[in-house]
């Protein structure tokens, strides 16, 4: 059986106007999200992973624009919608955002409104999309919190965000995102602000929800370990481009791009103590003076003359793509 593609991003370019100079944060990203699957998007700060997510949600700031490419969302009815053509605040976008595609933001501390009780904040999303009374919406909010294992959920509906701990707030964020049973959930660094034991709780919950509801998840993170645990497919981003894409096994077991190899070697792994860590030299260049050709060339061990040209995506094996001229050398030595 062929997997149903629920979200197709094709050659996406998103730019920002900074002092009237356009800067491209995402330049030519293509990927597809299949129904009921988890796609991990990995990269360091500034690589465009969050901008990609915000482009899909049409939540870019005023000076941000999708300049090229398409984002096609397939509804449950089979109807295809090109999200980039919708008005940001138009009716159709508002119907999709929060109901069919919803998002968990990175920082639960600052993403909740401090002056409303959390029950109201969950119910607001339900009432925005469905014709229910406030009481019914609050009742559903309570059920959601119970599903998310918040103790004495009924009493806590009237509590304000400051009365919750970080892990609890992130559960509330998940409850808001899951309130209308979305088909796609975009999780932008959902556990970065949390402690490891709380992170384990949240990840276990997300896995459970995904199993029960068959939600497709786009998981944005910089933590290779989390991706290995959650994702089916992985896209590694560097300076606004996907440099490697494939199934989690392909990319983790035989990374082809020097950057992916570097990322995997640079993190200390529990139980495998080394004397020195591999480190990628230098740091990510600024978007203002984006290098011509391959952006990673200046930091790459395998850089050659050819790297002055922007590399095309090549298929290493079926479903495993890499954007590197010298991936063969890199795979042999890496």
């Amino acid at each position: 059986m062929k997997d149903d593609i629920i979200l197709q991003v094709e050659n996406l370019h998103t730019g920002f106007l900074v002092d009237n100079v356009p800067l491209e944060a995402v330049s030519g990203v293509s990927f597809s999200l299949k129904a009921g699957r988890v796609l991990g998007v990995v990269g360091e700060s500034g690589c465009g992973k969050s901008v990609t997510a915000h482009s899909i949600m049409q939540l870019l700031p005023k000076y941000g624009r999708i300049t090229e490419g398409s984002i096609t969302y397939t509804r449950a009815t089979g109807e295809k919608i090109e999200i980039q053509k919708l008005r940001r605040t138009g009716n159709q976008m508002r119907q999709i955002r929060g109901k069919e595609i919803s998002m968990i933001f990175q920082d639960p501390m600052s993403s909740l409104n401090p002056v409303y009780p959390i029950g109201d904040q969950i119910a607001e999303n339900i009432r925005e999309h469905e014709k229910v009374t406030k009481r019914e919406a609050l009742d559903r909010a309570r059920k959601l919190l119970e599903d998310l294992e918040i103790p004495s959920a009924a009493e806590r509906l009237g509590d304000y965000p400051h009365q919750f701990s970080g892990g609890m707030k992130q559960r509330v964020m998940i409850a808001i995102a899951m309130a209308c049973n979305p088909r796609i959930l975009i999780a932008d660094e959902p556990t970065t602000a949390l402690d490891v034991t709380i992170q384990a709780q949240i990840i276990a919950l997300m896995k459970k929800l995904q199993r029960e509801h068959g939600t497709s998840i786009m998981m944005i993170t910089h933590n290779m370990g989390l991706v290995a645990e959650m994702a089916d497919e992985i896209a590694v981003m560097y300076m606004g481009r996907i440099v490697e894409y494939g199934s989690i096994r392909q990319v983790m077991k035989s990374p082809a791009h020097p950057y992916t190899q570097g990322l995997l070697k640079a993190v200390p792994v529990l139980g495998m103590k080394k004397d020195r860590l591999y480190s990628i030299k230098g740091s990510t260049p600024s978007l203002v003076d984006r290098p011509a050709g391959c952006e990673f060339a200046s930091r790459c061990e395998y850089a050659t003359e050819a790297c002055r040209q922007v590399p095309r995506a090549v298929e290493v094996e079926p479903g495993h793509q890499v954007r590197c001229w010298n991936y063969k050398e890199a795979t042999d030595n890496g």
């Binding site: 370990g225 290995a228 989690i248 983790m252």
Partner: peptide, 16 residues
């Protein structure tokens, strides 16, 4: 609770 960046390592997580 620490996630391991290896697809073959499956461990019993203790979730507090």
């Amino acid at each position: 609770a620490v996630p391991i960046p290896d697809v073959d390592v499956k461990k019993d997580q203790i979730i507090l």
